[in-house]
Structures are given as structure tokens and as C-alpha cells.
Write a protein that binds this DNA or RNA. Structure first.
Lengths: 160, 160
DNA sequence: CTTCATTTTGAATATTTATGCAAATCCGAT
DNA sequence: ATCGGATTTGCATAAATATTCAAAATGAAG
């Protein structure tokens, strides 16, 4: 798995789990986990992950992953992995990508993608076993694949 | 009403309405509205209001009021307004526009658009929560937005 | 009205976060 | 492996935001 993706998944996980109140704090946790990075990279990652900082009674400020921009919570996670298993293949044409799935999986899978609102995708339309993804202008197939892996980590195996 | 409260309501209103991307920007708007305050006070107000700053692909960062306590506009409940309330967002790529809606709204909303036959749109395809609009050649995003507002006036709030 | 306690505010500043830019790394095509 | 272009990163720093501290405003009670 690519380093950047792995790192961002770790960040997401840490933020969902603990109450983090500054990038420096997060930076130290990441370093403890063996990642090498600087605050600058963290700032960019948080931007990409759409992480927000809000005031919190107890700790002053905490980072949160706002509704919608997020998926997860362990339970969701297994559901997502289950759905990701329905993935068949992904092909590109112009600014569109077509994802094929096992019968019946398309709409649920599309819903997962939609709900995480990846920047790279401006919308999806799902049938029964096919999803049409409209890519934002300027987005490459590689970009899209990356963002899909962020949403559904187990796709990594099938896409890498 | 106390001054502080009035000010904070104004802040909330401004943030709900426009895309604000820094406290300085907000500060100027507040001053234009006749409030006297400094960035320090603004920072405290935003903390109290639990306003968060999140990345936004268009403007870099925007302030948002996360969730909850959001009693908005008592709108007329005509059918169209009701449907328009299902609108989520609208994005463009090439000659296509993708409108995302709340689950289940897409086909009804698309029907409303179809039935008014706007010149700008040569056709629509709707799923459950997404509508693909094919725009006539030469039509700009702005043109399309205008025509949609003509069909559904209350969209103006969400598109402007 | 005066006094004392509490809350709110601004100025200055500390802290935190974002970004320009150059270097490093990654990737695909020879 | 080597080149060329694109992406990612760190460094340094700019920009943005939070907080300290003292002063001003507010309010409650005599």
C-alpha cells in the first residue's frame, strides 16, 4: 500500500479514536507508531481528510471527522469490507469510471462512496451490478483509485 | 438583547449563509454590519458557537456550524419546495452536471426539471439520490443554475 | 449612586496551522 | 537502469487562531 494512503488511514483512525487537540499532539502519536512526517504534511493530510477542529467542553479543541465526510466506526467498517467484496473491476473512459460489481451490490457500494464524498468524484449512479462514477475534471484514474482505497481499504488488494 | 448574544447570532447567520474562510474575513463583514469587535472576540465567539473550519475544495477552508441546533427557514410546503428541500449539491464536469439529493428524491426532482423542459438541459437520468443532467452545448454552469432556480426558487438559497 | 464581584473585551503575544518553494521520491516509458 | 514529468515532502515562514493579562463594562446589593 502506498505510504501516503496508509498514513492517512492511520490519522483517520487516531482521530476517530482519541481526543486530539493539536497537530503537534497528533504528530507525536504518529511518530510513536513509526511514521515519519512533519507538521506540514499533517496539515495537508487533515485537509484532504476534511478533518475539522471544534471546541469541546473538556479539552478546549478537538479534531473531528465531520458527518458525511466520514465512514467508519468499526461496525460500519466490517460492513464496508463486506461490500467491497462485491467489487469486480474498474474501468475508465474520459472523465467517467465504470465499476462493475457482483449482482445487487452496486447501489450499496455506491452509497458508501457517496457518503464519504471524495473530492475526486462528483457523483455516482448505480444500477444493479454497475456503478457509473463521474470524476471531477483533472482527476486521473490513479487519483480515483487512491480515493477509493481510502474509503474501502480492502479494495487495495483488487486494485493495486 | 445583550450585545454578545446579538453578535453571536449575527455570526451564526453569516456563517450559515456565506462561505467564510477566515476570521479576518468574517471580522470585516461584522464591521460592515456595524458591530465593533476584534479578532480575539471572534475567536472566542466561534469557540462558543462550536464553529469548525474544514477544507472545501473550492475555497480552501470554510467555517461550518456542525450539525444540530439548526432551525432553518420556515418554507412554504408547496410540492416543489418540498422536493427542492431534498437537494444536496450540484457539481459540474464538462457538459454534465451531477445533482445529489437526499435518498429517494432524485427521480421526483428530475421529473420536476424534465417537466419544465429548460432549454439548458437536453436530458436527465436519475437514480435514487443522484441526477445526471446533460447540458446543451455552450451552456455554462451559471446558465444551468439560473434555469434551475427558475424552476425551483428555493434552490437559490442553496446554490447562491 | 457606590462598591464589590463577575463577565466581557482589546491589545499584544503565544501558539497553531497553512503554504511557497525547492528538493526528494515515485512512476511510467524507454 | 535512465530519463522526464508528476507527486509528495520538509523546511522555513507566512498566515491564522487562541490565549494571557489588564482594563472596561455589566450587574447585584446596599
Amino acid at each position: 500500500m502506498k505510504n501516503r494512503t496508509k498514513r492517512q488511514l492511520a490519522i483517520k483512525h487516531i482521530i476517530l479514536k482519541g481526543k486530539i487537540s493539536s497537530q503537534d499532539e497528533l504528530l507525536h502519536i504518529m511518530k510513536d507508531q513509526g511514521f515519519e512526517l512533519t507538521q506540514a504534511t499533517l496539515s495537508r493530510d487533515l485537509k484532504i481528510l476534511k478533518v475539522a477542529k471544534v471546541s469541546d467542553q473538556a479539552l478546549g479543541y478537538v479534531y473531528v471527522i465531520p458527518e458525511g465526510a466520514n465512514i467508519e466506526s468499526q461496525r460500519e467498517n466490517s460492513r464496508i469490507n463486506f461490500l467491497a467484496d462485491g467489487f469486480r473491476d474498474l474501468q475508465f473512459s474520459g472523465n467517467m469510471a465504470v465499476m462493475r460489481t457482483m449482482p445487487g451490490y452496486a447501489s450499496s457500494l455506491a452509497a458508501v462512496i457517496d457518503s464519504s464524498q471524495p473530492y475526486e468524484v462528483i457523483g455516482t449512479i448505480a444500477g444493479d451490478d454497475t456503478i457509473l462514477l463521474i470524476m471531477r475534471e483533472g482527476i486521473t484514474p490513479g487519483n480515483l483509485i487512491n480515493s477509493l482505497i481510502l474509503v474501502m481499504p480492502t479494495l487495495e488488494d483488487k486494485l493495486g
